[in-house]
Amino acid sequence: MTIRIENLSVTFDGFHALKSVSIAVDKGESFGLVGESGSGKSTLLRAVAGLAPVSAGTIEVNGEALLGNRRSRAFRRAVQMVFQDPYASLHPRQTVDRQLLEPLAIHGIGDGERRILKALDEVGLGSSFRFRYPHQLSGGQRQRVAIARALIVEPEILLLDEPTSALDASVQAEVLNLLEEVRGRHGLTYVMVSHDLGVVTHMCGRLAVMKSGEVVETLAATDLAGGRMVSDYSRRLMVASKGFSREVAPV
């Protein structure tokens, strides 16, 4: 078990963003968190990363219990995150080179030159992108840089917070393919948050459906796709994801 979360609660100024949530993610698994805004799916991810005020419960990653928002150096290297908005997650004043060098410098990893070129290559950006500033890149290219930045320290777990929802549908396919390819090559564990059932069932083996800070149900992606869900909410979400049609449109 790589990630084990038990009875986790997160409270922001009296607002219960997460209410006693438990999930477990196996090593090498791709796990999805689905829900609408306010369901707490992003909060859960941020709690693992140490970015949310945990009020109760335990988070265990690689057998190491995490206390509060403190994280060990090893954790910081083993767990990386990719954010939703590639326009906000790259420092606007730093070149791609600088952004990729930063994690290496923090973790005292040498051989930067080779690693940066390799990481850029891996995400499908050539070395010609190395000295560009974020404003010289498209949304998809930025997200590739963000993925390269996460991969450069050779992590085991990637936390993906809606990595494609800010991108065009056409660019989304490219980024999703890249993420799958990278996972296959490095045997990474993914925890992916998304509001798009199509994306999650495509990317993940198992998923948890969340609603107002609680897990409604946890099921295999194939079960969801096959309509074998228990809760009404999952079913509603499923119908909504099929797209607009005049027949089911609420009157």
């Binding site: 910081r76 290297r77 954010f83 997650s89 420092h91 606007p92 930063e102 973790h107």
Partner: peptide, 22 residues
Amino acid sequence: NSDYIAAVHLMGASPTRIVIRH
């Protein structure tokens, strides 16, 4: 509170480093 500061924070950068370099 921007994502790029959260990103360097998640990489394990010390507060001093975040303030001075980012």
